[in-house]
Nucleic acid binder design. Structure first.
Lengths: 338, 338
DNA sequence: CTTGCGGTTGGTAACGTTACCAACCAGGGG
DNA sequence: CCCCTGGTTGGTAACGTTACCAACCGCAAG
């Protein structure tokens, strides 16, 4: 009838009385057993096994100065394999340091991010790792976080000077665009995100720089910067290829736009729609790119490594080995030609 | 110099003295403010804002019977988008119930799973959701878990009778294989996992049933059941296609094997290797399957929904609305023809 | 034989919070 | 006028754990 089933978790007192010792002896045994007689240690461990006792970590961390062993991680979209890998990297390094991660998904919603951060702090996390949304950053200011260190990943937040791990978005987009220009293309379309999205802005800048440097004209009518999902990207690619003067190549600033563009190109091939079969450069890797019906150059990077770097930065902060001022790590990207 | 920077988290006492009330009044205000004078509530809220106070959830949940608000989730491989989506589904439902998830990655390692479960229980999780590894299950027995409910996902554990969410592996594999037989294929290869992997075994059973039912011979020399990653799958596909009597179609039991097989098929096309271009049925969806050089039928399913169902089962248990005996939910799969 | 020391053990208090109970207040009915 | 009621407030204790201190032991040195 009641909600609780069976026995609740045994406490250290129950273990102690079963082993015929004091709670302190149990505590000391579980802490490594220094200055506890071996026979008592054995009796304690036997009682622990028999009762199925686990230390209550929440009670342990109640004592101030004691770390909770939890790292709060908030990412924007777990369904994106990129962030799945990122979370994995964070989890790995956290586990190496004996910590667990509490994970929340913001879905690009600033309100949800705010909630998550509050909750994480309420749970006494030792640190925070965040892929920030583009909303305001008031809730991330140091005075709001108390002494909980924060690391940003993938994106920076204006007016917030904290440790950050980024990709070399500008350089990658620059080099990717150059590879198209080197192949003789001059009319190159752009598919990407709004400039309010940090990476969207940076990747556009790389594209722009390469185009300008080589004297290739930038035509706003073949630049689409507001697609967040595959369907929108498909539509944008369609419009671009239906342009009276269509591009001969397309730079796609992220995975979603690449998939959308390829869907549209595939459709045209199947349906026999005339017009160019544009070459593609994709920021973000995807599987089987080598089997695509048009050549796809991939700007690849390691999301898992990005997660590992973020966690490494955080633990440097926690262990006091970090520089006084905020550090930014910018991870290189690689270009893979078809 | 020291590790701790700045002020530590303020306590309820500090809020109370700043607002000029007792800690109890603060506690009551934060709990909704029943029977607290509105002007005092305002003073309390002002003090909360000024100090940047967050309730210590660990201390709150110390009181027995109080839920911690945490759900422990252990999955085998976060880098796999399938499990990323699964975790997302769990996270969504948990958030709807005001809970957070602690996430751990087992990497198919039973020892790591054991560690994670211990740690989760030590952190007083309200429930556990697990994609179990194939190791032994002693640490998952009810007496070891105390009163913490457990839900298994994707796989069952022998000798453990708990709530479980599965895919219709057998039915999906059966129908997928049938679609190849319907298309006239009789010599169909199989790429999959060892039978010790729960889904590997079930999907093979579906394949086997369809073949037997239609009187198609099952030839062990075109059955490869030991590939865990893309490279191994590629090699297995290569051997299969180099067979003196190669299959005209291949059933692939999971995403990794599908990608591997397609890599090999693509290589043969590029290099002009003679031989069949086998049709493919893939258990697990992947993006751009419609652009592949051979027709690919996809057995699709919704990992996010699987996560949602697992969490729903868990909360039914937690809220006492579940059946007395363990429930199994088997989610349907859909077949998408090229 | 006493002293002192190191190893071992247990009692106490405190971490931050809230359930429970007691105290107090004002106002209305007797 | 007193008593009771209901709304409001605060004190106390307890949740499970461990740091700190006190106590005790046996043994070696003086």
């Amino acid at each position: 009838m009641s909600t609780s089933r069976g026995a609740r978790q045994p406490t250290i007192k129950e273990v102690a009385s079963r082993a015929g010792v004091s709670p302190m002896t149990v505590s000391r045994t579980l802490a490594g057993g220094v200055n506890v007689r071996p026979d008592l240690q054995e009796r304690v461990m036997a009682a622990v096994r028999e009762l199925g006792y686990y230390r209550n970590e929440n009670a342990r961390s109640l004592r101030p100065g004691q770390p909770s062993g939890l790292i709060g991680v908030a990412i924007t979209n777990l369904a994106n394999p990129y962030y799945g890998n990122f979370a994995l990297g964070v989890e790995e390094v956290a586990a190496e340091h004996g910590r667990r991660i509490i994970l929340g998904n913001t879905g690009e919603d600033a309100g949800r991010e705010r909630q998550l951060v509050s909750d994480f702090i309420g749970r006494q996390v030792d640190g925070l790792i965040l892929v920030p949304t583009s909303g305001d950053a008031e809730h991330l200011q140091p005075e709001r976080l108390g002494d909980v260190p924060l690391v940003l990943a993938s994106r920076r937040v204006p007016g917030l000077d904290v440790d950050t791990v980024l990709l070399d978005d500008v350089g990658g987009a620059y080099r990717g665009t150059l590879s198209l220009l080197d192949a003789g293309h001059t009319r190159i379309g752009f598919l990407g995100n709004r400039s309010s999205v940090f990476t969207g802005e940076r990747r556009y800048r790389g594209y722009e720089r390469a185009m300008t440097e080589r004297g290739a004209p930038i035509d706003p009518s073949i630049i689409a910067r507001d697609q967040q999902d595959v369907d929108a990207a498909s539509r944008a690619a369609r419009a671009m290829l239906d342009h009276p003067e269509p591009p001969t190549a397309i730079f796609s600033a992220n995975n979603r736009n690449t998939i959308g563009a390829l869907r549209e190109i595939g459709r045209r091939l199947r349906d026999g729609v005339p017009g160019p079969r544009p070459a593609l450069v994709s920021f973000d890797d995807f599987e089987l790119s080598e089997l695509m019906p048009v050549p796809v150059t991939v700007i690849d990077h390691d999301a898992r490594l990005l997660g590992r770097e973020a966690a490494t930065l955080l633990f440097a902060r926690l262990e006091g080995t970090a520089e006084a001022e905020a550090t930014t790590v910018e991870l290189p990207v690689t270009i893979e030609h078809p």
